[in-house]
């Protein structure tokens, strides 16, 4: 197995508060990873550290053995829905076309081929009929598909998705997970921050469990077990169990 991303002893802090402590990870090519952990466990921070969006106190992240800077267009990031300004005057097509930006030099213009690729990605996500809509006019499921279409349009190798299943309907969730599985079958590597523990077994090949520290990382069958879950979620899960009993 090829190691695609290596996280070596990374620690990150905000305002002198440690968010990630000494994380070691090796991400293998062509697998679908679920990243699991309670709120404030540093899941989004881990993504930002991998993407080189924030200063890392200690440690190193490498993509294909290099710094992320060398592989920008191969890595695509789909942020949480709440991080997006839905009022912005942008149409669905404008957003998807952004996927072509990393492939262009400063003075290069977007051409017909780029537009055709954007259209193809819209079709793959089944939203070509919405191409001229302003992004805020769409339903939650459609909005998520727009950003996935952009990811497809970028022709990336590595996908980082932050809570893609929040606020969308069940049908769209099924469609998206099927598509992600298909992408991994084609050799893409996908990391998904996920909060619904009941679907972890079904959705992912591998699971990364963190709570500021790395709790466990490995195949879902052997890693997503009660012992690790209670380590990751600590006190929170007992509350969960109690509410279930009620």
């Amino acid at each position: 197995m090829k190691k695609l991303i290596e996280v070596k002893g990374v620690s990150v802090s905000y305002d002198r508060k440690m968010v990630l402590r000494n994380i070691y990870l090796e991400i293998e090519e062509g697998k679908l990873y679920g990243i699991i952990g309670p709120n404030g466990a540093g899941k989004s921070t881990l993504f930002k550290a991998i993407l080189g969006l924030l200063p890392i106190n200690v440690g190193k992240v490498s993509v294909k053995g290099d710094k992320i800077k060398k592989h920008r267009k191969e890595v695509v990031y789909v942020p949480q829905k709440s991080d997006i300004d839905w009022q912005f005057p942008a149409t669905v097509f404008d957003v998807v076309l952004m996927g072509r930006y990393p492939h262009k030099g400063i003075f290069q213009r977007l051409n017909q081929e780029d537009k055709a690729m954007a259209m193809q990605s819209l079709q793959d996500m089944g939203i070509e009929h919405l191409k001229d809509r302003q992004i805020g006019e769409l339903s939650g499921g459609q909005q998520q598909r727009v950003f996935l279409a952009r990811a497809l349009c970028q022709e990336a190798e590595i996908f980082l998705l932050d809570e893609p299943f929040v606020g969308i309907d069940v049908t769209t969730e099924e469609k998206i997970i099927t598509m992600l599985k298909q992408l991994t079958a084609e050799g893409k590597t996908i990391l998904v921050i996920h909060h619904d523990l009941s679907t972890v077994q079904e959705y992912f090949d591998k699971v990364i469990m963190i709570n500021q520290r790395l709790i466990a990382c490995g195949d879902v069958e052997t890693t997503f077990v009660d012992e690790n879950i209670s380590k990751a979620f600590g006190g929170q899960l007992t509350i969960l169990h109690k509410t279930e009993e009620l």
Partner: peptide, 19 residues
Amino acid sequence: YRYLFATTFQSVIAETMGI
């Protein structure tokens, strides 16, 4: 135009695209 659009709309994404 596309740099202005990308950084205005989603600065974080623009950064991950190498802008």
